[in-house]
Simulated scan of single mutants.
Amino acid sequence: MKVDSSHPSLESLPAAYACRIQNQSMISVSGDERRSYLQGQLTCDVNSLTETSLLVGAHCDAKGKVFSAFRLFEHAEQIMMLMSPESASASLQQLKKFAVFANAELQFADVQAVALAGDNIDEILSPLLPSLPDSEHPVSRYQALTIIKFDGHKSGYIIVGNDDELSTFVQGLNIPVYDNAIWTLLDVINGFPTLSNAAIEEYVPQMLNLQAINGISFTKGCYMGQETVARMKYLGKNKRAMFSLQGKTEHLVESSALLEKQLGDNWRRGGNMTNLYQADDGSLYVQAVLANDTDLNDIFRIKDLADTVLTQMPLPYDLDDK
């Protein structure tokens, strides 16, 4: 499949497009005890997973700090966890340590994923599929492919399968195919946490808005880090949250750059980026963990880049605890 390597701004994306999700990795979990094992490790209620459901969750260390935030679903009689490669490496290493005591096998999945999005994507897909997954049943099957609906300001579908089947299906749509950077843009716009190496084991799930996207079950019972996560909810100790920011600069921005917040005529450290997309025209779309009382009118910039003004983008969900 021919891939367009340009990085358009959000406003210049076409009405329907695909993007490779090669900046994400998948962990596959198989074995008779895969559900019960993951239930004791993850923040989401794995026991509620069905063939047509999609779960969001986090994998934490014993202190409640997040190794990974992921989308979890079934594919080819396995449970799949889709997340950033850095998070996948960290989570796989930790999950394997305890899997030796359960009939559960974890490994990197040998499948690929492509996202389909744009205002006209439903119109293009509907004639080709028996039915489209929806918000109530966000996962469906077509031949050997798994089709997953994702919601947000820019909704769409994730198609999972082997490379040949996936390429054949996408080529038949006759729409532009972008590289994986566009998936970063979609995650930023939709407020879905994606962690780089620097962010792993730095934040509890509520600092990444997992409670706002149904990524934490407070009724499922014990799991790794559960005590800290519960304390954050019931004692109100969380002081940070994840936000989406946008701006523009003529400079190339590194994902490790720090953010500064404007206070009068001065600038002070404002927070840390977790994800970044920079378009070819210099447009910036930043995901960052900031103080949870950040105001809509607060101004941020990339440290040492005076020309960069970053303002808040609306999130597609309410940050209040659930």
Rank of each mutant, 00 (worst) to 15 (best):
N266E: 10
S25M: 13
F73P: 09
S5H: 14
A117C: 11
K261H: 10
K303W: 00
D45H: 05
F108M: 11
A306Q: 10
L258M: 09
M242W: 10
P130S: 10
I148W: 02
C44D: 04
N238I: 07
Q93D: 13
D32W: 07
L166M: 08
V286C: 02
H75S: 07
L129F: 07
M242D: 01
F101A: 10
N174E: 15
S135T: 15
L13W: 01
K303C: 01
D164V: 15
G161V: 06
S126K: 11
V170E: 10
L252C: 04
N272K: 11
D119A: 14
D318R: 07
Q278H: 08
E202A: 13
A181K: 14
N47F: 15
G31W: 01
F73V: 06
A279P: 11
P176K: 05
D293P: 09
D61A: 05
T274N: 10
S53K: 11
I21Y: 05
K2P: 15
E136T: 02
D61F: 12
F300D: 06
V100P: 06
G221S: 04
H59A: 08
A104R: 01
Q312H: 15
D281R: 04
D122L: 03
A99Q: 02
S244N: 11
N120P: 00
K237H: 12
E11V: 12
L276Y: 03
E260C: 03
D295P: 04
A88Q: 07
M80I: 10
M1R: 01
V204H: 03
G247R: 07
Q78R: 13
K149Q: 13
R301P: 11
C222F: 10
L145R: 06
E105W: 09
Y157G: 07
K63A: 13
K233M: 07
A241W: 09
W183H: 14
S6Q: 11
F70I: 02
G264T: 06
D187Q: 09
A90R: 08
L185G: 07
R34I: 03
D119L: 06
G221A: 07
D163Q: 15
I158V: 15
S9W: 01
A306T: 12
G172T: 05
N272R: 13
L49G: 09
V66M: 05
F98I: 10
Y234G: 08
V289Y: 12
K220S: 04
M83G: 06
L95S: 06
D281W: 05
A90L: 08
D163S: 15
D4M: 14
Y223T: 00
K248R: 13
E11T: 14
K97M: 14
G161Y: 06
A279E: 09
N297I: 15
A76I: 03
R20D: 09
L106V: 08
S131F: 10
S36F: 12
A88Y: 03
D110G: 05
N120W: 03
W183Y: 11
A102K: 02
Y203K: 03
F70W: 08
Y223N: 04
S87H: 13
D179G: 06
E254G: 12
V56I: 12
A88M: 08
D320G: 03
L310K: 06
Y277V: 06
K261R: 12
T146S: 15
L259G: 00
N292K: 04
F192A: 05
L10T: 05
R301E: 09
Q287Y: 01
A288R: 07
P316F: 05
L13V: 01
Q93V: 12
F70V: 09
M207W: 01
A99E: 03
E250I: 06
N162R: 09
